[in-house]
């Protein structure tokens, strides 16, 4: 009985450790393209993209680099 309990606990701990090792942040952008269509010259236009954190670890946005 003790042996079974120890074995079960061992398996549980191993699974937990593997889970912790594979935990990772993940960024999802559902609508990653936006078409402004026709726009006049010499104007400032803006659009909001939604960013979702869908991983199993906190997501840090480090930098946005202009395209």
């Amino acid at each position: 009985m003790r042996r079974i309990l120890a074995l079960t606990s061992g398996i549980f701990l191993m699974l937990f450790a593997v889970g912790s090792l594979t935990a990772a942040p993940r960024l999802e952008i559902p609508d990653e393209t936006f078409n402004f269509g026709f726009v006049p010259q010499h104007a400032s236009i803006a659009h909001d993209f939604w960013l979702h954190s869908t991983g199993d670890e906190e997501l840090r946005i480090l930098k946005v680099v202009p395209g």
């Binding site: 909001d48 939604w50 960013l51 869908t54 997501l59």
Partner: peptide
Amino acid sequence: MLAVGDSTRLEII
């Protein structure tokens, strides 16, 4: 910093 399951807006100008 975005917690798991959270969302935020990114404005592109």
